[in-house]
Every structure is written in C-alpha cells, then in structure tokens.
Simulated assay, not measured.
Amino acid sequence: MSFGFNLDKHKIKQAFSQSVLTYNDVTQLQRTVGKALLQHIKLPDVTDTLLDLGCGTGFLTAELLTLLPCERMIALDMALPMVQAARLKLRNFDNVTYICADAQQLPIAEHAVGHVFSNLMLQWCVDLEAVFTEIRRVLKPGGQLVFSIFGPQTLQELKQAWAVVDNYNHVNYFYSMSELEAFLRQAGFTILKYERQSYVSSYESVLVLMKELKQMGAHNVNGGRNKRLTTKNQMQNMMAAYPKCIDTDRILATFDVITLVVRA
C-alpha cells in the first residue's frame, strides 16, 4: 500500500545527524507534544521492556525512565549522533540499551517489548506500513504503541505560499488519519485512542521559520522535490505570499499533531 510522496531515507538520516548540535535549542514543540504523550500512559501497566523509537537526544527517554518503573529501556534512532547524544544525557541510568538502526528493520527479537513510545518521528519513515509491521512483530501480544505524528495540516501556510510560486513539493507530505488507520489495521493493530490538536507557533519571519525547520532536521526531504536551486526571486515571491498576522509583522506556522494509542 502506498500513499503520499516518496521520502529520501538518506537525506532524512543526514538531516538529523547534522542537526544534533542545534536540535535541543529548537525543539520546544517536540517537548510540549512529548509531555502530552506521557498523559496517555497507564502507569501500573508499564513495568517490563520499553522502546523509545526515534529517541533523538533523549528527552522523552529521560522522562519515561523517571516516570516508569521499567526493567529495561531501549533508546533507538537512525542517526548515530542522536544516539550518542542520548547516551550522554542518560549516562546516570544503567538500564538503557542504545541502538542505531532503521525503524523498518528493528534489530530486536520477536515479542521482546511490552510498550513502544514514539514522539513526532514516524512521519519521517519511508515505508510507514512496514514500520508498523515491525513494531507489531517486536511487541508482546497485548502490548501497546503510543505515538504522536504530524498530520496533513502541518505547515499549511508554508505549503500555500510555495503553491503561488510553482507546483513542486517544497514541504514534506504528512499522512492523514485515514491513511494511518489503514496502515495500523493492515499491521494487525487495534486502535484504542485517537486525539488531534493544532499547535500554532509564531516567528519573526519566514526565514526564521525555515532556519528552525533545518536546525531540527525537519526541512524538505521529499524525493519528488525540485532538484534545481530555488532562485532569489522565487524565494521572495514565496515570502510575499506567506500570510502575515493582522496586527504584527510576525508570521504563524501550524503544526497538526495526531496522537494514537494502539494495541498489538
């Protein structure tokens, strides 16, 4: 099953590897969403092995370790610099295993994990259906996957502004709820809970927004994007088309967040 645009896996890995030094400075949204994700955890049920899928620099991993009495935590990310940063951050915890791997090919035994948590990472997966199948494989029967993912209205203002300039995909494709539901059911999951919330961030300018997206590793990694360099004139036209706040010169950016709790 295939939806949306093809993502370039190499560029995704490269982007997050290069952003490790600036990632913590520009990820307030990820932290806010991550803390909200913790509210979906039933504490008495989480005691065995946990997997933080897409651990990044270890923020959510640290929160999970502090909150939950788990026997073992697996911190996994496809970007080695992120795994190294997480290891440094979590050096005082002795029950963490660090893995650099692709979520589509998890080096974890079948039915070895009780719970999987993933915060704003799964939208970067090239084959999300395959990733859900892998997560289902490593989860114990009845185990839960709790995750947040960017929805289709994410960066809608930036998409609209670029649409004035040309027909290329300048912004990443984000899956709809119906697409996610199809992937999950195909992988054998039962959906227990679904929430959706829009977060709106304010920026001094479009350039500041684009710089932040690059610093967090979340700039355009679509395989079908324009291969030519964007001209100065095209960039100026896009920024002129970007909607401005009525009472200030600042601009707003929407981040559409879908949160799901599913059971294997």
Rank of each mutant, 00 (worst) to 15 (best):
E181N: 10
T254N: 11
A79M: 06
Q144Y: 05
V221L: 01
V171S: 13
L50I: 15
V206Q: 02
F183C: 15
A264P: 15
L145D: 06
S19F: 01
L120C: 05
L158I: 06
K193N: 14
V26P: 00
V26S: 12
E212N: 12
V83F: 07
K232D: 10
E63G: 09
C125N: 02
I41A: 04
S17E: 01
Q197F: 01
I74D: 01
L88F: 03
G54Q: 08
S2L: 08
T97M: 03
E110F: 00
A240W: 04
Y98D: 02
Q234R: 04
V221I: 07
N226Q: 13
V116Q: 03
F16E: 02
K89R: 15
E212F: 05
N169C: 15
V164I: 12
L139W: 04
M73D: 05
L122E: 01
R137K: 11
M235S: 09
S17Q: 04
K89L: 13
Q197S: 12
A161S: 14
A36M: 10
M177C: 05
V126S: 12
L29Q: 03
Q197L: 07
E134F: 08
L60E: 03
G56R: 03
Q186G: 09
T49A: 15
F132W: 03
V200S: 07
L184P: 10
H170M: 09
Q215D: 14
V257F: 07
G4Y: 00
N167Y: 02
R228N: 13
C245T: 12
I74R: 02
N119F: 04
S176A: 14
I12D: 01
A79V: 13
S202D: 13
L155M: 13
Q144H: 12
V96C: 03
V20Q: 14
Q84A: 08
P69H: 05
K211T: 15
L67K: 12
L38H: 02
Y23P: 12
I191C: 06
L60F: 02
S178R: 08
Y203M: 02
Y194E: 08
P81W: 00
A36S: 10
I191K: 08
S2E: 05
T133H: 01
L180T: 02
K244M: 09
D256P: 09
Q123E: 12
D48W: 00
F150A: 15
L38Y: 04
T32L: 09
P141C: 13
L90C: 11
V33W: 02
W124S: 08
L90D: 13
L80R: 09
S19N: 04
A161W: 10
G224W: 01
T231H: 03
A163F: 00
Q236I: 07
A62N: 14
V46I: 15
L139D: 05
L88D: 15
M238D: 07
V20P: 06
A187G: 09
L64N: 07
G151W: 00
F16T: 01
Y168D: 09
M121N: 11
N119Q: 07
K227Q: 09
A86L: 06
N172A: 15
L260D: 05
K244D: 00
S148H: 06
G34Q: 01
I12E: 00
S148P: 12
W124N: 05
Y23M: 00
G188Q: 10
V116I: 13
T22R: 11
M1V: 07
N222D: 08
Y168R: 03
Y242V: 09
D94P: 08
T27M: 09
L76R: 07
D48Y: 04
L122V: 06
M210R: 11
V200A: 04
